[in-house]
Nucleic acid binder design. Structure first.
Lengths: 362, 362
DNA sequence: GTACAGAATATGAACGTTCAAATGAACGTT
DNA sequence: AACGTTCATTTGAACGTTCATATTCTGTAC
């Protein structure tokens, strides 16, 4: 009984000081805990926790007192403790695309925008590298097992993509940038390539062009197919004969591309309107046109794809089809968020419209 | 006593089954814990932990048994529990550089290589975005306080960089890609720009060139200064008069650049050897040369910087100065690792040599 | 004033791991 | 045969949070 009193009137302050001293030695950089904040504000652990996670349960003046203590001590919740207790990680895994090969400014932009977008839903991006698809899939499994990631985003999808199945089986929330034609049903966000090239062709038609060239990749895939279809359908819709559309398969070499373009320019029915699957290749077209004194934007039109930094650099600016990458990233974050909120929510696919950025060349 | 016996011969199996059943309901996707593995292998928690973290303390046959259990159950250590206990996170924070502006293929490659390099030391990259430097610094503080990151890597350094000081104060291990001339002492890795341009000029001298142009950025910074110094010193060393070196300030516009290059080409002492601070701008030079029938690699030489995808694309290949990004990333990982091992280790700066990739244009 | 309901706050337990210390087994030494 | 020593393994505690539940406070109605 008097023991109790001693503990209260005497012991508590002593205890307080003692703990403070005990902490002091490692204090300079040791981070305060929720308990320290509580002690400082004269409340318990849980009240501090409530201030942070459920403020409506706490009296306004208490909130203020606790906030003051938080600011004074510079308290930040320890992620690992929180995540351990709640079973979440607030991390989203993303395999950084393999380096080299193509100039993929889109993917760089995407990663940046994705980082910002997931921050808006209180998450962060956890990067990993992998040489092959099997490694990537194995990694998802591991991240899930370690509860190191709450969700996954992947890009560079392909037909019958193998990634959705294992992720679905593990019940790991995920959204892909790109459809996976034929894979199991899941959430995705993609850009309508057909609409993009249709936009470009219609713009060119409006400017009086009647002879077209589409510059596609050497190894066409489903992405190119759709873009090419957009070109074809827009041309067909304008009752332009199919013979007035030339399809060029670009190589990964400027000299070869230049020759192919030159050959086409020398033909009697040379196109006046060029649409390319990439800005860089559009630059090559510009070069060849200028070499012949053909002024892009006046005598001919050139439209690129992706609005990469190259496009802005190209003297005065290259007209280009821009993919709405910011919107893609934000939509992905929202779809992920929806899956976090309700793991059984219906998967959703979102197809976004690209935009034609009209500059000097077309 | 017989109680004990009961517990062993009878209770243990029962208990085993009971726990197994209790777990069963959430078993399908619930991840097994270290305890489950122990039970399955007939050892304790700690032994499993030792198998994973200090195998030398465990008898080989026990290791085998535990490994089997790990594989059977598909066990992976829970990151948060481990990190909470050990006070580490095995995460390295990196601010993803702001999008747009320049074509920075170097930074993209760097991020990829860094991701791989930190995996080799058992870490992963945690990305974050920030609009300004203050936000970036605040974020480092937060990440440290939350113990969400064990280390930091940052790039795009500048003179008197403000980032080292707060990181040092917080005793947060970090390495910068780039020197911070004038900032507090810390570990860094950088590429010797002087050596890079010297390499290029010496190569051009050996090929008989005597009149040079250096294409630098519109807003020169310390990075350009060093590169330009490399050019100047190599030229001076060859006893070429300084008048035979032309310095061009590139604009962010191809037309303007093209005109500047054309003016120089029309001058009586036009350079025959061109070195550019960027591959893309080197492409512009190539275009202007070809327009005049000057064949790069025969009549003139053009050397770019960074070996970006653009360089490989440029018909047959652009000769270029490549920064050893893989080595940069690996060295950064090692320096970080050293700081993890010994927080009081001396900071080290490492300056790496770039490499000249000789292709068709020079 | 007392009883009661509801709001505000506090307490004990748990998340899954590793650390520190304790126990048990194996093994030569004296 | 008893005794340290070393090696292998186990046990109790702790990391910092949140959940579930218990307790205390506050104001209102009788």
């Amino acid at each position: 009984m008097n023991d109790d009193v001693l503990e209260r009137s005497d012991g508590a302050p002593l205890g307080h000081l003692e703990v403070a001293t005990e902490r002091r030695e490692r204090f300079v950089h040791a981070t305060p805990t929720i308990e320290d904040v509580g002690r400082h504000a004269g409340v318990s652990r849980q009240t501090v926790s409530n201030v942070l996670n459920a403020p409506h349960r706490v009296r306004p003046e208490t909130i203020e007192r606790v906030q003051l203590a938080i600011n004074t001590l510079g308290y930040r919740a320890n992620h690992h403790a929180r995540n351990l207790r709640t079973g979440t990680s607030r991390a989203i895994a993303y395999r950084i695309p393999p380096v080299g090969g193509h100039l993929n400014s889109v993917m760089d932009t995407f990663l940046h925008e994705l980082t910002e977008a997931v921050e808006a839903i209180g998450c962060h991006i956890l990067l990993f590298a992998s040489n092959d698809l099997d490694g990537e899939i194995a990694r998802y499994w591991e991240l899930s097992a370690q509860s190191a990631a709450d969700g996954v985003v992947f890009s560079s999808t392909e037909r019958e993509d193998r990634r959705p199945a294992p992720l679905l089986e593990r019940r790991m929330p995920f959204v892909s940038f790109g459809r996976t034609w034929g894979s199991a049903e899941h959430s995705w966000v993609d850009v309508d390539g057909r609409a993009g090239t249709r936009l470009a062709i219609n713009h060119l038609l409006a400017n009086g062009h009647r002879r077209f060239a589409w510059l596609g990749p050497r190894n066409p895939g489903v992405v190119n197919d759709e873009r090419e279809q957009g070109v074809r359908s827009a041309i067909a819709a304008a009752a332009i004969p199919a013979a007035d559309l030339h399809i060029v398969s670009l190589q990964d070499d400027a000299v070869a591309d230049r020759r192919a373009i030159a050959d086409l320019l020398d033909s009697p029915d040379a196109p006046t309107a060029w649409v390319s699957m990439s800005d860089l290749q559009a630059l090559t077209v510009l070069g060849e046109l200028e070499a012949r004194g053909i002024v892009p934007g006046r005598d001919a039109a050139v439209i690129g794809f992706d609005d990469s930094p190259v496009a802005a650099y190209a003297g005065g600016g290259l007209t280009t089809i821009r993919q709405p990458i910011t919107a893609v990233a934000q939509t992905i974050a929202q779809l992920l968020s929806a899956q976090f909120a309700d793991p059984n929510s219906e998967p959703r696919g979102v197809l976004l419209e690209p935009e034609l950025i009209v500059r000097r060349t077309g």
